[in-house]
Design a protein around this nucleic acid. Structure first.
Length: 140
DNA sequence: GCCAACGTTGGC
DNA sequence: GCCAACGTTGGC
């Protein structure tokens, strides 16, 4: 299993909205960036990811699971763009802020720090465990 | 609200 | 194929 990070502005699509979708999940649509799309193409059903709120709160707030592999993005006719479907798995008991990530030298290489503009990012196994630890959750 | 960083577009 | 111009993102 691989790990990822999904970034969203809460005013556009928030964790609460994701949770409200339940196990049915939702398309992670609207991505118009080749790097982000390519990462989604690599995803497999069962992969897990962090849900990150950009802009106003700037923190990792929950864990999601990929429930459908990459398929055409229903919000555009442009066949270049694809997306996966994800569902909310659990909130982090203690959201991990961007400041906390930056303050932890073990996380210095996270894409979130290195390339803050990329909206879909890979997360290493080590980074996953560290962030889960900071968030107060068992990283199974 | 500002600005730096980055990606995309289009003229040549 | 290069590069300037432009648009967007996101941290501050």
């Amino acid at each position: 299993m691989r790990y990822w990070l999904f970034k969203s502005e809460p005013s556009t699509w928030s964790w609460d909205q994701q949770v409200a979708k339940g196990d049915a999940g939702e398309e992670w649509d609207g991505v118009r960036n080749y790097q982000a799309r390519n990462f989604m193409r690599e995803m497999e059903v069962g992969d897990r990811g962090f849900f990150y709120h950009s802009q106003t709160s700037r923190e990792i707030v929950g864990i999601v699971e990929v429930i459908a592999a990459a398929h055409p993005d229903s919000t555009t006719d442009d066949e270049r763009w694809e997306c996966v479907d994800i569902k909310a798995v659990a909130p982090l008991p203690r959201p991990v802020t961007l400041d906390a990530v930056k303050a932890d030298e073990r996380l210095a290489d996270m894409v979130l720090v290195r390339n803050s503009r990329l909206s879909v990012q890979p997360v290493t196994d080590d980074q996953w465990e560290i962030v889960c630890g900071l968030g107060g959750i068992d990283s199974r």
